[in-house]
Design a protein around this nucleic acid. Sequence first.
DNA 1: TACGGTAACGGTCGTGATGACCAATACCAA
DNA 2: TTGGTATTGGTCATCACGACCGTTACCGTA
Lengths: 255, 255
Amino acid sequence: MSDRARATDVPAGYDPSEFPAFAVTVDIVILTMADGRLQVLLVRRGIAPYEGMWAIPGGFKRPNETLDEAATRELAEETGVDGAAVLNQFGAYGDPGRDPRMNVVTVAYLAVLRDIGQVIAGTDAAHAALVPVSDALDGQLELAFDHAQILRDAVERVRVDLELRGIATAFVGSTFTLAELRAVYEAVWGVHLDGANFRRSILSEEGWVIPTGRRARPGASGGKPAELYRAGRMWQQGGGPIRFPQTSEKRKGKK
Amino acid sequence: MSDRARATDVPAGYDPSEFPAFAVTVDIVILTMADGRLQVLLVRRGIAPYEGMWAIPGGFKRPNETLDEAATRELAEETGVDGAAVLNQFGAYGDPGRDPRMNVVTVAYLAVLRDIGQVIAGTDAAHAALVPVSDALDGQLELAFDHAQILRDAVERVRVDLELRGIATAFVGSTFTLAELRAVYEAVWGVHLDGANFRRSILSEEGWVIPTGRRARPGASGGKPAELYRAGRMWQQGGGPIRFPQTSEKRKGKK
DNA sequence: TACGGTAACGGTCGTGATGACCAATACCAA
DNA sequence: TTGGTATTGGTCATCACGACCGTTACCGTA
């Protein structure tokens, strides 16, 4: 009982060197949509350990910056993207053996970007690549450190955030069709959504999307050209217009 | 572009001392229900900085343990509680000035306990106390470090977890009445729930609560004695039977 | 220019979840 | 015995939402 106090308090004879020192890093799981699938930006490690393996980009936190600032800086260094539109911390990882060199505690961030294709295109493909998350988590791709777990947690987080926070529009361009937005939900959640119902959910409440009056060019397969929308103010309030489908078991049977 | 590689990779001439060293701590926000209100366990700091102020309990992470293990150990040291029934990491905090002594990055955990009253009772009241979170966040109580922010984030997290994870039963004893369980939701969410509707939601699906056949003794104010239940298996699957009330605006008007 | 294919668009229908509300029951305290 | 209180069981109206159908508008090709 008497050592309760010691657990929180610093001993009288304080000396920083008495406390275990850790390196603190910030890792950023950068997600984007490409080819209708959820993809993650990975970099190839140049040196040991895990040399040549794919890893989540990241770097060391500096003493004079906050964790959020470190994440913003790393994101800019990796992609050149400045505005941290969607950059959320989602976990800390500090297993003793996660880095064979020394004690490293990493704080993981999730970033959602659009139009990352050109960024990658300007880079050596051997160094950075956009990989479908399904491929990265199938075990086909072996990730360095505990990055497979971090990626799994990130994907789980983005699935939740898609419903509870307004991050859906972060995946698409400044103007978009409802089909493009629907594709985000379908790719992240791995479900099929009825186009008409999706449209109704979005349009029934004011402020989610704003029609621009312009129309998108139909794809190669034809079809009626879709209206182009801009993101409304509602996305910033947290929460979204689309809920994850319930597929109630009673409803299932009556299909 | 060329320094992208350096952001993730360790320079060839590797020397641990080149990288900024941080102390890593684990702070645990311990929440419980008492007097029908959500309360948090705080400890009083014995030494500078912030000497004499209330703080969230925590301690240094050791090099040979994981973050989760550190949190479990600290929880046991603080409360004597062994089983980490509900112990979730919810954030990391590393602002440069958050600890005036040195660079400290802390990883925050949320613990939900029941029957913590006796634990506190056996302790010097000047050292540890159970404080209603509303009081702790009103600004009435000034917390050390950035612990006010950590506590705010913890409360936000428990509100979400109450709906999405099965943590409601962690607040109550091994047997409980539906009114006790409802009080958990009402205290955490700060809303009023209709007793009859609450009952229907819980009982409509099998596996949430299991009747014991025994009845609770009515409180001092009388009333029909309530059935005592045990927690069912459904709570462990994640998700809960009660959703946060929507209070749709259309419904609001027709009250 | 006519025609088939495709996808957006607009609407209907049935079901289930849920908030509001009411009445009966069962216990305590005075 | 009586009044008060809280549990328990039930009804009702509303509404969100999945399933589904038909129309519209544009494409490419014959």
